[in-house]
Simulated scan of single mutants.
Amino acid sequence: MSLLRVSNLSMSFGGVKAVDDVSFDVQPGELLALIGPNGAGKSTCFNIVNGQLRPSHGSVRLDGHELIGMRPRDIWRRGVGRTFQVAATFNSMTLLENVQMALVSREKRLYGLWKPAASCFEDEAMALLDQVGMAAHARRACSVLAYGDVKRVDLAIALANRPKLLLMDEPTAGMAPKERNDLMALTKRLVSGRGIGVLFTEHSMDVVFSYADRVIVLARGKLIAQGDADTIRNDASVQAVYFGTGKTFRPRASLSPDGATQTEPRA
Results as ranks from 00 to 15, higher is better:
residue 117 A to I: 03
residue 1 M to Q: 09
residue 197 G to M: 02
residue 27 Q to F: 00
residue 55 P to D: 09
residue 159 L to R: 02
residue 224 I to A: 03
residue 19 V to Q: 08
residue 147 Y to T: 04
residue 193 G to E: 14
residue 241 V to S: 07
residue 82 R to N: 01
residue 241 V to I: 11
residue 215 V to F: 05
residue 264 E to L: 12
residue 2 S to Q: 07
residue 28 P to A: 00
residue 5 R to H: 10
residue 174 G to K: 06
residue 68 I to D: 11
residue 47 N to D: 14
residue 22 V to Y: 00
residue 150 V to K: 15
residue 256 S to Y: 06
residue 138 A to G: 03
residue 248 T to C: 07
residue 53 L to Y: 15
residue 249 F to A: 14
residue 250 R to V: 13
residue 85 Q to V: 11
residue 243 F to P: 01
residue 188 K to E: 12
residue 40 A to N: 08
residue 74 D to Q: 14
residue 51 G to I: 02
residue 119 S to H: 10
residue 11 M to K: 15
residue 69 G to K: 07
residue 60 V to N: 07
residue 60 V to L: 06
residue 118 A to L: 00
residue 95 L to Y: 06
residue 103 L to S: 08
residue 52 Q to D: 10
residue 144 V to D: 13
residue 80 V to A: 02
residue 124 E to Q: 13
residue 102 A to W: 00
residue 131 Q to A: 15
residue 94 T to E: 03
residue 140 R to K: 14
residue 66 E to C: 08
residue 177 P to Q: 03
residue 169 D to G: 02
residue 157 I to C: 15
residue 113 L to R: 14
residue 183 L to D: 04
residue 213 D to K: 04
residue 200 F to P: 08
residue 145 L to S: 07
residue 142 C to E: 05
residue 121 F to Q: 02
residue 51 G to H: 02
residue 228 D to S: 11
residue 80 V to H: 01
residue 200 F to C: 10
residue 174 G to F: 07
residue 116 P to E: 04
residue 111 Y to I: 01
residue 4 L to K: 02
residue 110 L to I: 11
residue 247 K to I: 11
residue 243 F to W: 11
residue 98 N to K: 10
residue 92 S to K: 11
residue 84 F to L: 03
residue 267 A to C: 11
residue 220 R to Q: 15
residue 179 E to N: 02
residue 144 V to P: 05
residue 208 V to E: 04
residue 155 L to Q: 05
residue 25 D to F: 02
residue 246 G to Y: 09
